[in-house]
Design a protein around this nucleic acid. Structure first.
Length: 431
DNA sequence: TCTACTAACACTTTTGAACCGC
DNA sequence: AGCGGTTCAAAAGTGTTAGTAG
């Protein structure tokens, strides 16, 4: 629908892209359990707006040395470390609900994907420090394949079972608060619980498209956007957390994961042992159904709360209050007369590493499923396409090669809710 | 027959509008 | 009129289950 080149001819005809990236990280050292700066961020992908990058407002130290992700699937050489210019030195991310993630990870996290889109649970919920309180930043999340294998549940564990499906178009979820000031992001944890995953390659909603039975890794990107309506960027940092790796499924395979989800997800409270939709109650209902009309619902099970039941819910009034208290500048009337789609449109190529070992994108993937379909979600997604061979992202050969939902929500994404509207961060840290 | 997937279902939480009292 | 609290219905999210396709 809207390709960056259409809206911003100054970008030229293509993004210059960089090196393949290692993707497998199953052997992350345990010592790296906190936030990781994604080491293989390909800064050459920033070329499209490199000339516009602002000078650092103050002297920035070199980014801390971080280990390169181990590559287990081939002899690819590691990409060069990110240039300091494109990094955000001193910025660190920590996974808020790390314990819950680790609990799932110990069993083998599975994420349901559906045609309509399914939320992630647990959701990625992070705290950020080290930002410039005055500067503005974007928070983005994407999900990338961990390796080139398809997996199969063998009754007790997951095993690789053949080669992965062709890589699908990458999409990026932009946190609806973006862009906001560093102070805003640092005030409270940032939750990505509204991210939805789908297995529908024709998905018109902008959800993140995944293959079932594949292993994936969420990544969180932080981008300094100093001017909302320009191509000026002050730095980029990407993070990922090994414990958030998961296998996408259309139905849960491991019953232990099911139990964990039911125990931890408030929406599944009805399936807990004391819930009305627990197995005992369901069986009873079936029997009653067979006997005849079902009487009034029994209260024998009740719906008591399970201790520790988390809630990735949104944000109540405290968030709203905080928003009015320190409304990010973009919520005011943008000087350019509207939300800065440019800021988002400029980003995709900058944030997508396409591990070279991964299968190439399916060339038969339909690029333009339904141009006329409205996009009902308020969060914006960006979509990218890897180049031939999946080794690098290249300029789209034509406008139509970007799916019409490249930016959902019409001509501009809707990451700028009006004053007092919903903010997607800072809900009570319940897990 | 087996595996993966889909849609319907019943339940829950979330959300926002309507209403009320101060 | 404005504010804050409560109530209620609709929307959305959840795992389960039966059915389907390959």
């Amino acid at each position: 629908m809207y390709h960056p080149r259409e809206l911003y001819p100054s970008l030229g005809t293509g993004y210059r892209l960089g090196h393949p990236q290692p993707g497998a990280d199953s052997s992350f050292p345990p010592a790296l359990a906190e936030g990781y700066r994604y080491p293989d961020l390909d800064t050459s992908k920033l070329d499209c707006f490199l000339s516009g990058i602002e000078a650092a407002p103050h002297t920035l130290s070199a980014p801390p040395p971080l280990p390169l992700l181990p590559t287990t699937l081939g002899p690819e050489t590691a990409p060069p470390p990110p240039e300091a210019l494109h990094s955000l030195p001193g910025v660190s991310l920590s996974l808020e609900n790390q314990e819950l993630w680790k609990e799932f990870s110990a069993v083998g996290t599975e994420m349901i994907i559906t045609k309509a889109g399914r939320r992630m649970f647990p959701a990625c919920r992070v705290s950020v420090t080290g930002l410039d309180p005055e500067a503005r930043y974007l928070f983005l999340l994407d999900v990338v394949p961990v390796d080139g294998a398809r997996y199969r549940w063998q009754g007790q564990h997951w095993e690789p079972s053949g080669k992965a499906e062709p890589r699908l178009p990458d999409r990026v979820y932009i946190h609806p608060d973006s862009p906001a000031t560093g102070a805003h992001w640092m005030r409270q944890p940032v939750s990505f619980h509204r991210v939805k995953l789908t297995n529908s390659t024709l998905d018109p909603h902008g959800h993140l498209i995944l293959h079932s039975m594949h292993k994936y890794q969420p990544r969180i990107h932080l981008v300094r956007a100093t001017q909302l309506c320009s191509q000026h960027w002050g730095g980029v940092a990407s993070f990922r957390f090994p414990e958030t790796t998961f296998i996408s499924v259309t139905a849960y395979q491991n019953p232990r994961i099911t139990q964990l989800k039911i125990a931890a997800n408030p929406f599944a409270k009805g399936f807990r042992e004391n819930g009305r939709n627990c197995k005992r109650e369901r069986d009873a209902r079936v029997k009653r159904k067979l006997r005849g009309p079902e009487p009034a619902a029994t209260e024998t099970c009740g719906s008591g709360d399970t201790p520790g039941g988390p809630c990735d819910s949104t944000l109540g009034g405290d968030i709203r209050d905080s928003d009015t208290e320190q409304t990010p500048a973009p919520r005011e009337a943008p000087p350019c007369g509207g939300p800065s789609a440019e800021a988002y449109l400029l980003h995709p190529a900058a944030f997508h590493g396409a591990p070279g070992h991964l299968p190439a994108r399916n060339p038969s993937f339909p690029e333009a499923p339904d141009p006329g379909r409205p996009a009902p979600y308020s969060a914006a997604f960006l979509e990218l396409q890897p180049g031939p061979g999946g080794s690098a992202y290249q300029a789209a050969p034509s406008v139509t090669s970007f799916a019409p939902h490249f930016i959902q929500g019409g001509p501009f994404p809707l990451p700028y809710p009006g004053p007092g509207s919903y903010l997607d961060m800072g809900s009570k840290p319940m897990y």
